[in-house]
Design a protein around this nucleic acid. Sequence first.
DNA 1: CACCATTTTTGGACCGGGTCAATTCTTAAG
DNA 2: CTTAAGAATTGACCCGGTCCAAAAATGGTG
Lengths: 231, 231
Amino acid sequence: MASPSGFERGLDHGFDLDALPLRERKKIQTGIRLWRTAVTLFAERGFDQVSVAEIAAAADVSKMTVFNYFPTKEDLVMGPMEQHIDEPARVVRERAPGSSAVQALRAHYLAALAVFDPSTGLSDDRVVLDVVRVIHQTPTLLVRATAGFDRKSQTLLAAELLAQDPDHDEFTAKVAAAQLLAAQLTLTADNQRRMLTGERAEDALPAALDAAHRAFAMVERGLGDYGAGTA
Amino acid sequence: MASPSGFERGLDHGFDLDALPLRERKKIQTGIRLWRTAVTLFAERGFDQVSVAEIAAAADVSKMTVFNYFPTKEDLVMGPMEQHIDEPARVVRERAPGSSAVQALRAHYLAALAVFDPSTGLSDDRVVLDVVRVIHQTPTLLVRATAGFDRKSQTLLAAELLAQDPDHDEFTAKVAAAQLLAAQLTLTADNQRRMLTGERAEDALPAALDAAHRAFAMVERGLGDYGAGTA
DNA sequence: CACCATTTTTGGACCGGGTCAATTCTTAAG
DNA sequence: CTTAAGAATTGACCCGGTCCAAAAATGGTG
């Protein structure tokens, strides 16, 4: 029932839906039902204007059950998108031999843009847009979407950089990870902002690709004398 | 009474303490008293293990009064350090003509290090250390200290960069701001981590200065082929 | 000094998010 | 069919935060 819409795929655990104990399947279905009703209500009236009790009632469960599936109210929105946390580290780990960290992450990001992966912010999908809109309208969610996500992701990437390249020290790896993810996060935020103004993803693609090239180039070549006026 | 300890200076509004209506003075004193008792209790037993009611009781006030001075429980910890939000933007705005954004921010940060300004993370002060320890032990505070602080700061810096240098576009300014603050944040986090291990600020100063030089250099010159192995 | 106007403080009731111990239901074995 | 084990579920509870009306404290004024 209904299209998985990209985000929902994050709610199962990567297995085949129809191939496991009937018990587990029901659990997964309940999780998806909860998430979907929550997002719908949030999109209609705003995150803070919907109580968890209300979501529970709308999904015919008790309040506690909701917290059983999602540890906090915020997770009802953020949960599914947090499976991407280890992606940057993975991309760097599995990069082609001899290619730099910047090259690997840029290539990965450009590819994701080309297929309109929701994680790039460049997506028309109605549900994805609902989620993004709710996040951008709710300060606490926005903070968590950036920092909360980014911090863990950054730690993992730094560890990966250090492991793969032991001639650089730990601090250098941390700074590099911060630079890379800051660029990527800025790109995604910009794409999301454009989508929220109603622009179609396909129309925004060229600009998004160009922006990505420029952002990663800034990380690769540095800011130089940016701001010195005499450039 | 008791040493102002750097942080507490953030609680008054920059005026002379003893020169204004007795009414205002009492208010400021109460604010400091509340903040200090809260930090003490947090340091002793952890942020989540101390209720606001308890703080109010320890300071001989009602719960409502606490919220009257600090909008949220988190502000009891973070409040004083959030006055630095507009600092990066100010530094860039007031930089010497012809100097780049990187140069201006690096010089400012190095100067702050040299005087052990708490905002750099390099500070021995007992109260500062208490606050930093509490923040690092409490996930929600850590998120707010990084993202929450950084996001606003970053927006301001990006706006400043754009205003001062109209030949660069808005997106470039955003990426540049993100790069600069990511480096600075990484530096500060690293310094704080070192202080929490018990290292003396004076002993850590040389390493901190060196790290700052390297971090800003990475922003200035770029990551290049970092990770390519063939450096 | 006494009085009024303004502001701060207070207590209490209340709401929503989140936790816990106990209850109910499902499931599998005998 | 009975029963014991284990999980899903629940209702009672705690804490952060808001709202309100009343009480207290302060500053200015006759």
